[in-house]
Structure formats: C-alpha cells, structure tokens
Design a protein around this nucleic acid. Structure first.
Lengths: 125, 125
DNA sequence: TAATCTGTATATAATTATTATATACAGATA
DNA sequence: TATCTGTATATAATAATTATATACAGATTA
C-alpha cells in the first residue's frame, strides 16, 4: 500500500492518510478483505505516532470502508454498494430538493441547473 | 430594530446579530437606505462590546447588505437582486459538489444523477 | 468651538477546537 | 513467553475563534 505525507500540503496528516486509503479502496486498488498495514507498522514507516494512523483508520471504519478484527488487524470492507446507495440516496435527494428550490428562487432555469451538475460531474473525472 | 441575543444558543454573538439583521433586510422589514443603529448604541443596548457589533456590521457590509458612511453611520444597501442570486448560486454549487461526491462513493452514475435532478425539477412544476 | 456623536485601527485576552502524542492496557498468535 | 494486533485514557502543542480595551479621526450639533 502506498501513502505519501506531504508536510507542505497544510492538510492534517491523519486526513491525508484517510483520503489516500479511501481513494485506493474506491478505485479497487485495495481489494475487498485485503489486510491493511497495521496502524503501528504504517506509523513506523511514515515516522509518525501510531495514534495518528489510528485516527485515520477510525475515520475509515466510521464511514464503512474498513473493518477491524481485535488483535488481528484492519481489513478492506466488502463493497456494500446497495447499503451505501440507500444511505447516500437519501442525502442526495435532500440536496437535490434544496438546489431545485434555490434555483427557483433565483430564476435559474432547469436547463442551467442540469448544466451545472454536468459540469461538476466532468470536473470530478 | 430588533435584535435578541440568546446566550444558550451556542452561536457566537456577532453571528446572531449578523443573521438577524440580514433576515430583516431580506424580508424588507428594514428598508433600503434606512439607518441602522450605531455600532456603539446597539452594543450598549445589548450590553456587549461595540467591537462585537462592529464585527457583525463588517460581515453585513462584506456581503453587500449594508454600506457605511464614515463618521455618520451604517445604512441598509439597496436590494441587489444580482447579489442574492450570487449567494444562491454559491449554495447551489456547494450542494452539487456534495451530491457528486456522494454519487461517486456509491457508484451512482452521472446519468442516473442527472435523471434524479430532472425528476425533481418536473415534480416542482 | 467644544462636546459628543459616528466609524476605524491596532493590540490583546480568553476560550475553544484541532492535531498529534505517550503510556498503559488487553486479546491473538507463533 | 515474546511479540504481534488494536484500544482507552490522559495530555501537550498549536491554531482558530470569539470578544474585548484603548487610542484615534471625521462629522454633527449645541
């Protein structure tokens, strides 16, 4: 596994770790049930406290990307797409409701709104 | 003018002042070019430092809701429709950013996302 | 013109939130 | 038993936020 800490980035260390591992899980670079480096091992590699790597792993677990087996290690969680969908769809629907409302109050047309979404989607690629 | 500070609200004082005055300007309760209470006078009424009321007024001015005349006072800015539109656009952009992110993490395709937005738009009619 | 309004500028105190850490602990494994 | 694994609690260091006092400068008015 590959994690690089950029001390000049301004982003906190735990967050850099969290973001990079998350990206690797989403991209499939890290497979389901694959074991992650131990929080101590990774900390040693990066020459930081293991509490900091632990914090990154905690975030990953809270968001459902990894699971932990006591005294054994941390593993990439099976991609539970349906569950993630159900949770996120609600949030997405609520947000869409809001932007449609906002668009209406400032005379932004539906077409323009769609264009904005398409633009944001392209930015993400 | 009417401003109430709720010490239990958790929100900072300057923010409570900012929010309440902003709401009164948007609702039209405060008319264009109407003079606001002086930062010192309001501070005295609320029994807080005038630096705190000043901060609230600074925010209001920065967002274009009021304007200041040196040594005279602060006044409600003429309603700028463009300004409100820009405010809403920012919120819309932030929301779109979020839904795109959410969609990505649960493998919801761009096409599907667009469909959801279109659906919500039709519902609004 | 002097007193007293208005807002401004600079420095600072107090508080809270964030970030990173050490140390002591408990289960699993070889 | 030695040594991995993760956990829990307490704490240090830093940074951001919030609120303030004091000294200043222009405008108004009695």
């Amino acid at each position: 596994m590959n994690v690089l800490i950029d001390n000049l980035s301004g982003a906190p260390i735990y967050d850099q770790i969290f973001t990079q591992i998350k990206a690797q899980i989403i991209s499939g670079e890290l497979k389901e049930n694959e074991m992650l480096p131990s929080i101590r091992g990774l900390a040693k590699d990066l020459r930081i406290s293991f509490i900091t790597t632990k914090r990154a792993y905690e975030e990953l677990e809270r968001e459902g990307f990894i699971y932990t087996v006591q005294a054994k290690g941390c593993y990439v969680a099976p991609k539970n797409v349906e569950l993630l969908r159900e949770e996120n769809l609600k949030k997405i629907e609520a947000n869409i409701e809001e932007i449609v409302q906002l668009a209406a109050t400032c005379n932004l047309s539906g077409t323009e709104l769609i264009e904005m979404v398409k633009f944001a989607l392209e930015e993400k690629l």
